Simulated assay, not measured.
Amino acid sequence: MSKLQNGTWVVVTDSEKALFLRNLTDHDNPNLDVFDEDEQENPSDREQSANRPGRMNDTGVQQRSAMDDTDWHELQKERFAADLAEKLYDEAHKGSFKHLVIVASPQVLGVLRDEMHKEVADKVVAEVPKTLTNHPVREIEKLVKRELDAA
């Protein structure tokens, strides 16, 4: 079975953007069509923080230490991957795809694997650990085919 059959979904994502592509041909000559795109607004952590980090008293006399503040920017990146996993679950239940290729950075791929429902994981035919969200579609086609041929 070739990995890029007609109708196979290819999701190209990083921690802030996801491209949804559908293969219109076959594995030998892939023709990926972008049919959806998700992007989140994720300002820097400094812009999202409400105030400076808190302080706490230490055991010594008049000693105080700064506490680590929540990294809102990083938290939002993890939420994006979790939201993407949920969207894929909804689409799998609708029968929108039979086969799925995920192209994502290794960190995002790890979060997706943890968050992905079994119904979606069973449809994954390949994972490509690369960040390709800002590449042209023709370049994505070539890179994905090359990666899948090498696997």
Rank of each mutant, 00 (worst) to 15 (best):
A92L: 11
N23I: 01
V11N: 00
R138G: 05
D38H: 12
D68S: 12
H93W: 11
T133H: 10
K3N: 12
A121N: 09
L32D: 01
N23F: 00
W9Y: 02
A66K: 12
P136F: 02
E119S: 07
E47I: 08
A104I: 06
V61N: 10
H99I: 10
M116S: 15
H135W: 07
N134Y: 14
I102R: 06
M67S: 10
F80Y: 12
V101D: 00
F97V: 01
K145M: 12
P43L: 00
A151F: 03
K17P: 01
N6P: 06
S96N: 07
V10G: 00
Q107F: 13
T131G: 14
R22K: 13
K130E: 08
Q76S: 14
A121W: 02
K145N: 11
E16D: 13
N51G: 04
E41R: 07
Q5N: 08
M67P: 00
A50S: 05
E139F: 01
K17R: 12
D33K: 15
N31M: 02
R113A: 09
V61R: 11
L24F: 00
D68W: 11
G95C: 12
E74S: 01
A104E: 00
E39S: 13
A50P: 02
R52T: 05
V101L: 06
E41A: 05
E16M: 02
E147T: 05
